[in-house]
Simulated scan of single mutants.
Amino acid sequence: MKPMRKKILVTGADGFIGSHLTEKLVRIGYEVRPFVYYNSFNSWGWLDTVPREIKDNLDVFSGDVRDPYGVKEAMKGCSHVLNLAALIAIPYSYHSPDTYVDTNIKGTLNVVQAARELGIQKVVHTSTSEVYGTAQYVPIDESHPLQGQSPYSATKIAADQLALSFYRSFETPVSIIRPFNTYGPRQSARAVIPTIIGQLANGQKSIQLGAISPTRDFNYVKDTVDGFISVLDHDQSLGEVINIGSNYEVSIGETAQMIANIMNVDLEIVTDEQRLRPEKSEVERLWADNQKAKKLLGWEPLYGGKEGFKRGLTETIAWFSNPQNVSSYKTDVYNI
């Protein structure tokens, strides 16, 4: 589908998924204004690493999603908003929950309120599979009950409902995209797949992990990005919550062994107590039903199933094996 000429504001564009999404939007012909977190270094996060031909086509706005005036200013002149700005680290949410309320809930309010006032054509708000908590049935469809098993997931449930309330109360054109566990190049070292790769790449035969029995539905970042663009482009997504997942369930332990096999190294897993979530907070099982995305959007994962997961892991390992890519990572410590 050839995109209409739109100017897209991408909040959280300096992060893992946001940077990949920003890059893809530019490549397929959109005008993009990346909203990056203001800092005194004038760092654009991962956007600092994208090719020059991408950077030259970016209208970067530095600000803070918690500031309603800055959010509204950033949105002026844009037709669509992709809202990815959020605090996402679950362990950090245990000891600093107030920051999650400010960023995830109030930040979302700032986005949808500005969109309402400015007449934005569409807001795609980013949810997370963590809002489902441990699966009560599988695969998990969009009607599954919501369970806040961490302060992070509780704030994302609130943010989702707030965004949908603007659609129902004021007809603000909002869609909710709910990606399952996205992985790939540029992911934070706090996430489990980079944690495994980083320790093995450093020559550690015995790697430290938290619980290895929980299962996840890992979604390669290219598939997640394509999901965002599909939600953006399809009017059928308005007022809807849409899962973006691979429909493949795998345990953390199996994932670690698959990575070790691809890297051709031996593996021993040691439980690190500080990496364990509180018992009732651990999400034991996630497995996405992606039929709604297929039906409404025509989206389906290119990296689905076991073989697709292996391909995604291979590409991810190749990226993390390049010393230049991981020069700023701290793979020898526990990252929360």
Rank of each mutant, 00 (worst) to 15 (best):
S281W: 06
T128K: 05
G70A: 03
I176C: 13
R285L: 11
P97K: 03
G298H: 08
W44N: 14
I259E: 09
S175W: 11
N57G: 03
H144C: 00
Q291K: 07
Y69R: 13
S281G: 15
Y69Q: 15
A158C: 13
A211D: 15
A293R: 01
G239T: 03
I207S: 00
L47W: 02
E23W: 06
P185V: 11
S328R: 05
Y167W: 14
Y100M: 13
P323M: 08
Y183R: 04
Y329G: 13
V32N: 01
I197P: 13
R116C: 12
G239I: 04
P301L: 03
I177N: 02
I252F: 09
D235Q: 09
E315M: 10
Q136V: 15
E53F: 03
S213N: 14
T49V: 07
K55L: 05
S230N: 11
A74T: 09
N104R: 01
S327Q: 00
E300H: 13
A158N: 08
A89E: 12
E279Y: 12
I197F: 13
D14Y: 04
W319N: 07
L58I: 05
Q136D: 11
Q204E: 13
F309L: 15
A13G: 14
C78Q: 08
L200M: 14
T195C: 10
A318G: 10
Y329P: 14
A163S: 10
S150D: 07
A256W: 04
K222F: 09
K106S: 09
Q236F: 03
A135V: 10
